[in-house]
């Protein structure tokens, strides 16, 4: 078991190296910083970004938008998901809404949000609409997966409805919520940055990318992209770590 994990890490590392080599080869082939800057130069630019006095504000604002979108969609997703999971009538009402939200192109939502909201809140709105269906759908699936025999048992022992929800349903759906959160976050960060590129709030990674792109600073665009990827990666790690902490009962 231990060997296979090490092997996996080794292969992952090899894959990253291969991407960097390919990137370097492309940079050498095009030989133009405006088309493909070299990985080395991009790294220097990325490190330079950290020294920018606005760096914390830019990254912090994007993260706060992501978290705000996530918290609101997690709250709404759980609330509506639990109700829909327990009541097929409510589920029938909710499904068309979920399907609509999921199938509307993100760009259409952004264009509308640009008209309706202030630039700073557009990305939050977009994040909310992209993350909410994932979490909600997973919560509904989770509630549905609860063994009805367990509920018969709990009712037989006259466990109150509120305790059945908090001690039976919620722990049972935790793995579903976490996997929903993980997919939601993955999509959510991308949606936020697209939102920022188009709505141009004062601070935001998307705002910076757009600005750098205008001046053909391709290395800076890629450097910001790497930072966005790192943020997404860190949150994925946090979610996996919390899964480990919360879902202790699985073997």
């Amino acid at each position: 078991m231990k060997i296979s994990i090490t092997k996996k890490q080794y292969l992952g590392f090899a894959s990253v190296v291969a991407m960097l080599i390919l990137w370097q080869l492309l940079a050498m082939y095009f030989d133009s910083d405006v088309i493909v800057p070299s990985p080395g130069k991009t790294l220097i630019t990325a490190i330079g970004l950290f020294n920018d006095p606005d760096f914390i504000s830019v990254v912090g604002t994007t993260i706060i938008r992501g978290l705000a979108g996530f918290v609101i969609s997690a709250f709404l997703g759980m609330l509506l998901g639990i109700i829909a999971g327990l009541s097929s009538g409510f589920n029938a009402l909710l499904q068309p809404f979920l399907v609509t939200v999921r199938s509307v192109p993100v760009i259409a939502l952004i264009l509308l949000a640009l008209i309706w909201f202030t630039p700073g809140s557009v990305p939050v709105f977009i994040a909310l609409l992209t993350m909410f269906p994932f979490i909600c759908t997973n919560v509904i699936d989770g509630i549905r997966s609860v063994d009805p025999d367990i509920i018969v048992m709990a009712k037989f022992y006259r466990i109150s409805r509120s305790r059945i929800i908090s001690e039976v349903y919620i722990p049972a759906i935790m793995p579903f919520i976490i996997s929903g959160a993980s997919s939601a976050m993955g999509i959510g960060w991308r949606a936020i940055i697209i939102g920022e590129v188009l709505s141009q709030p004062r601070y935001g990674i998307g705002t910076m990318m757009q600005a750098e792109q205008t001046f053909l600073n391709v290395d800076a665009v890629i450097a910001w992209t790497i930072i966005a990827v790192l943020i997404s990666y860190c949150f994925e790690k946090v979610i996996r770590w919390s899964e480990h902490k919360i879902v202790t009962w699985r073997d």
Binding site: D147, D149, I150, M153, F156, Y157, P171, V247
Partner: peptide, 14 residues
């Protein structure tokens, strides 16, 4: 009443 079911019906997370 208490009920000992054919299957134990325990809560996996407890």
């Amino acid at each position: 009443m208490s009920y000992i079911f054919q299957d134990p019906r325990l809560l996996q997370w407890k």
